[in-house]
Amino acid sequence: MSALLLEAKGVAKHFGGVKALHDVSLSIRKGEIYGLIGPNGAGKTTFFNVLTGLYHPDGGEIVFAGEKLKASAPHEAAARGIARTFQNIRLFANMTARENVMVGRHVRTSAGVMGAVLCDRRTRAEEAAIHRRAEELLYYVGVADRADDLAKHLSYGDQRRLEIARALATDPQLLALDEPAAGMNSTETEGLRRLVEGIRADGITVLLIEHDVKLVMGLCDRVAVLDYGQKISEDVPSIVQKDPRVIEAYLGGAVA
């Protein structure tokens, strides 16, 4: 067994009376593709939001790479090495595809106002490196030909891939993808599968929320199932698929 990268311990999040997350504990190992599935409203996105510091948890804690994650500090989560995409794509719509990825480099670069104004050697080198890395990542995810187009003019599938490129630009250890295949056709989904496998092969751990059961079961090393904010199962796909609670709560007709 390889080392743990992330360990959530009893994470809870309530919205008024809704227990969106209720005592959720799960652990993700370094280098695996970990699936998070469950019916609509199960709390998957809420877990992402707690993990990335957008929501303050009402209980529990998350340990990442051996250290406790600070709650409600999204930019620190990114600095620690957690990157994400959003279920309802959140690109910088009026920036070009290239600029979107360049913003992703923010957390790994340091030029300030003085550097920008004086444009000294160090700043110029840093800018050049940002440009290069953005170029590479656009190519890597397959949207290099749209580099100078505004993000909002990209096709849906390209936008999803661009969001992944932007997330990768932060040099993450953990890449959290919230329904990356939503709205994609089968060819695009196949491309996405290869992309995610490639990302993992590069040594980045992937946390994947996805409703496409075939994709999840084919791609993930392990899967956790959420239902009404509670984890009802966690194991390798072949076992999770046969778990009667999972079949009842989520898979239903999909497997039967």
């Binding site: 990114a78 959003f86 719509a93 920008a116 800018e127 997330a167």
Partner: peptide
């Protein structure tokens, strides 16, 4: 100079989508 810099891009990113900007590690 500012417009075409790391800081300038961070400003525009905040204008475009503050939550995504945070997720990119922008304080």
């Amino acid at each position: 100079r500012l417009e075409d810099s790391r800081i300038g891009r961070a400003w525009v990113a905040i204008r475009e989508d503050e939550i995504a900007a945070k997720a990119c590690g922008i304080n």
